[in-house]
């Protein structure tokens, strides 16, 4: 009963803002493209063609072609899929571990909190790109390593946010009540604490999802992304950097795509926060 009221308010607030609706369409398109790139992409993203090398954008090649004559638009579409897989997988890693650490640390307090918090602080001190770059530099760049690297980078953010949220509800009556009833701690964390911090969890997940895409893109730009010929958004931009003057579209158009995707996820995140995060409610 509490839940459905919550949902109603959420939807009402969400729909009120037209920006959210436009954005929702973009997000849906993004999800569709991620699942069915072959429906949209006009060419095989790996197919080379020596007759069309470095062609500027046209009606046959919306985003032009690269030095191998591959269609950049098709590569971008498949790139979205790959980038999404990387960002999502790494977010799942950091969300799972980060949330676990955050709730543990917030719920128990004391020395557990101290230990976890100090380690989290230390990881937090690394700028995300620097830490991801460090891990990839040490262990080599492959899709798997990239996922692990980005995953590790975002653990502290989840841990910190969820720790704060857990502390703020820990002292509330219904949590204390469950303790009195004699439920065991893990059960309380899972059935009582987590549902009550889930809105913050969702907001954190969304906002960091977009920065994870940017981190993958930056690594790709620096030449440390997924190895070729597999396209990712970052890798496409990185490949184009050799040709910034001769063929700027190779960097500009996939870059634009990244900006639009990140922007719409950010708007979604902002919208969700306005609705879900108690701090932002009037």
């Amino acid at each position: 009963m509490k839940g459905s009221k919550y949902m109603k308010r959420f939807l009402k607030n969400f729909i009120k803002n037209p920006l959210n609706m436009i954005n929702l369409i973009i997000i849906c398109a993004l999800i569709f493209v991620s699942f069915f790139p072959s429906v949209i992409a006009p060419y095989n993203p790996l197919e080379m063609d020596s007759r069309s090398i470095l062609e500027p954008p046209s009606f046959t090649h919306f985003f032009g072609t690269d030095q191998f004559g591959r269609d950049v638009f098709s590569r971008s579409i498949y790139g979205i899929q790959n980038s999404m897989i990387i960002a999502l997988s790494s977010m799942i890693i950091s969300a799972l571990l980060g949330t676990l650490l955050g709730i543990l640390s917030g719920y128990y307090g004391g020395w557990i909190d101290q230990v976890i918090s100090r380690i989290i602080d230390a990881f937090f001190a690394f700028p995300s790109l620097v830490l991801a770059l460090f891990i990839v530099a040490l262990f080599g760049s492959s899709t798997f390593n990239l996922i692990i690297a980005i995953g590790i980078v975002y653990i502290p953010i989840f841990a910190r946010t969820l720790r704060g949220a857990t502390i703020s509800i820990k002292e509330l009556t219904f949590v204390k009540a469950s303790k009195v009833v004699g439920k065991n701690n893990f059960k309380i964390m899972w059935t009582v604490v987590f549902p009550n911090v889930s809105s913050i969890f969702i907001v954190t997940f969304t906002t960091n999802f977009s920065t994870a895409i940017l981190t993958e893109a930056s690594l790709g730009f620096l030449g440390l992304g997924v190895p070729p010929p597999e396209p990712t958004l970052g890798g496409l931009v990185g490949q184009g950097t050799n040709f910034i003057i001769a063929a700027p579209w190779l960097t500009l158009l996939p870059g634009l795509l990244i900006a639009v995707i990140v922007l719409s996820i950010n708007i979604l995140g902002d919208g969700l926060r306005d609705v879900l995060d108690p701090k932002f409610q009037k």
Binding site: I244, P248, I258, L263, N266
Partner: peptide, 21 residues
């Protein structure tokens, strides 16, 4: 502000380089 937040630095940089060159 949101656009600024969402645009990758290398993209903005490329736009500058292309325009200026």
């Amino acid at each position: 502000g949101l656009v600024g937040l969402s645009s990758p630095a290398f993209w903005i940089g490329t736009i500058f380089i292309v325009i200026f060159s």
